[in-house]
């Protein structure tokens, strides 16, 4: 469904991503891990169109995305959350989600119903009228997911939505991801919570200093000597 081919990103002489190639098949959950500064979010940004790669191609559903801006890509079915959350602070939680539903071409009344159904799914109904700016961080992260879901995506890119969540909240999030995946939604997930990502991903990609150094099932990744070396020699938690 998503094919990234030789994508390279240079920032003023600094190579943030170096010839990264990978694919995400329809219906899969793919994890993307790596130390801080490895280029994970930059790689995400080339998929959503916020950054244009200096070389390489990104294809989605067989289509080259090079000429499409982030809004076009969202309308094709690629949705994302932001690691540094970006709520529309002055809008209610409901209206935040409503904006996502409107871009699918729904009329305002219909989009409001979509927003409310999405909030219910994420157990946020009681917060619908609250200003987004008033939410604590954990709920702002959940709002990021709600907004992205309201666009009716086929591929959802999650950027560290589990950081700062307590174990119960992490489990709730994993349950939600599994349920959405069972309904056919494909996932590409950046996550620092190793325990969580190893539980849920079918395939894990490891990025280090802009290069993909390993790709495989979680169990194999945790045994990969290169990956262990990158994570400072500490053995990874078994899945």
């Amino acid at each position: 469904m998503l094919e990234v081919q030789g994508v390279t990103v240079d920032f003023d002489g600094l190579r943030a991503v170096d010839a990264a190639s990978f694919r995400v098949d329809e219906g899969c959950i793919v994890g993307l891990i790596g130390p801080n500064g490895a280029g994970k979010t930059t790689l995400f940004n080339t998929v959503t169109g916020m950054i244009r790669p200096s070389a390489g191609t990104v294809r989605f559903a067989g289509r080259d995305l090079a000429r499409l801006d982030p809004a076009d890509r969202s309308r094709l079915g690629i949705a994302r959350t932001f690691q540094i959350v970006k709520p529309f602070g002055g809008l209610s939680v409901r209206d935040n989600v409503l904006v996502g539903a409107l871009t699918r071409g729904q009329a305002v009344a219909e989009a409001r119903r979509t927003a409310e159904a999405t909030l219910e799914r994420l157990t946020m109904t009681h917060l619908a009228d609250a200003l987004a700016a008033s939410l604590p961080l954990a709920l702002r992260k959940r709002l990021e997911v709600a907004r992205a879901l309201a666009t009716g995506p086929r591929l959802l890119l999650l950027d560290e939505i589990m950081g700062g969540l307590n174990p119960t909240e992490v489990n709730e999030t994993l349950t939600l991801i599994r349920a959405l995946n069972a309904e056919g939604l494909t996932f590409l997930i950046i996550e620092h919570n190793m325990h969580a990502i190893m539980q849920i991903a079918e395939t894990v990609l490891v990025l280090n200093q802009g290069r993909l150094i390993a790709e495989g099932e979680p169990a194999a990744i945790t045994r990969d000597p290169q990956v262990i070396a990158v994570y400072l020699g500490e053995p990874l938690e078994p899945a």
């Binding site: 969202s74 949705a79 529309f88 602070g89 996502g100 699918r104 666009t151």
Partner: peptide, 26 residues
């Protein structure tokens, strides 16, 4: 304000990148 345009305008005023990522043609 009652139309999609009104919601898009307020959204992009609050955060342009987030609005774009949600499919708003800024």
């Amino acid at each position: 304000r009652r139309s999609p345009l009104g919601y898009y305008l307020v959204a992009l005023r609050e955060d342009e990148d987030a609005a774009r990522a949600l499919g708003v043609k800024v």
